[in-house]
Design a protein around this nucleic acid. Sequence first.
DNA 1: ATGTCATATGACAAGGCTGTCATATAAATC
DNA 2: GATTTATATGACAGCCTTGTCATATGACAT
Lengths: 109, 109
Amino acid sequence: MPSRTVSIKPYALFFQALANQTRMQVLHLLSEKGGMSVSEICNELGLEQTHVSHNLKCLTFCGLVTPSREGKSRIYSINEQTVLPLLKVVDNHLRNYASNLFTCDVLER
Amino acid sequence: MPSRTVSIKPYALFFQALANQTRMQVLHLLSEKGGMSVSEICNELGLEQTHVSHNLKCLTFCGLVTPSREGKSRIYSINEQTVLPLLKVVDNHLRNYASNLFTCDVLER
DNA sequence: ATGTCATATGACAAGGCTGTCATATAAATC
DNA sequence: GATTTATATGACAGCCTTGTCATATGACAT
C-alpha cells in the first residue's frame, strides 16, 4: 500500500487533455497567434467545427483555455501562465531526451 | 491549411505517457523516494509486476525514467531535469485553475 | 419573431489503450 | 548447466477516447 497517498488522478486527467494531436495543435496555435474564435481555429487548422468545439470544451474544462464572448463568436485564449512554461519544459525534453518521439506513431511498451 | 506546421505528434505522444494513473504514480513515487527496482515499486504501489514493467517501458521510451542494472534488479530513476519542473507547473495549475479535476472521474467534452 | 450565422451538444462506430494472463529472458548461485 | 530470482515481452478482451453526423442553442439583424 502507498506510504503517502497523493491524489494522482487529477494529474493523469490533466495530461490526458494534452495527449491529443488536435488539442495540442490548438494550444500551439493559440500560444503563437493569441485569442481566436472557433471558426478561425477551424480555418487555420483545416478541421471541422464540431471536432474543434469538442476539443475546446475539454481544454476549457481543464483550465487550459478560456472563452469570452465577442458578438456571435467566442474567442478562446490560452492560459499563458500554465501553457507557456509547460511547452518550454516539453520542448527542451523532446530535444534532449526524447528525439525518438519525432519518428514514431505509437508509444512503445 | 496550417500556416506554420510544427510537428505536433511528438508532443501528444509525450503527454500520452503521462496520461495514465499508474505511470503518474510511478513518477511521483520515484520523484519523492529516488531510484527503485521494479519489485520495490510494485510493493510500494501494490501493483502487479507485469503491469508496472509495461508502464516503465513506456516511461523509458519517452525518456522520463532511466533504468540501470544492479545485479539481478533494474533500478529506475526519473529524469529530474524534466519531471520536477513539469510537476511543479502542473501542481500550480491544478491548484489555481483546475481544482474541478480533483472531483471528477472523466474529462468533460 | 424569423432567419442567419456561430458555436455547442448528443450519440455512436471505429480504433486505441489498459491491465492481466501466460511465457520468455537475464543474472546470479549452486 | 540447472535452479532461482528479477524483470521483460506477447497476446488479447474490455473499456475508453476519437472524430463525425445530426441536431440544438445563442446572439444578432431585419
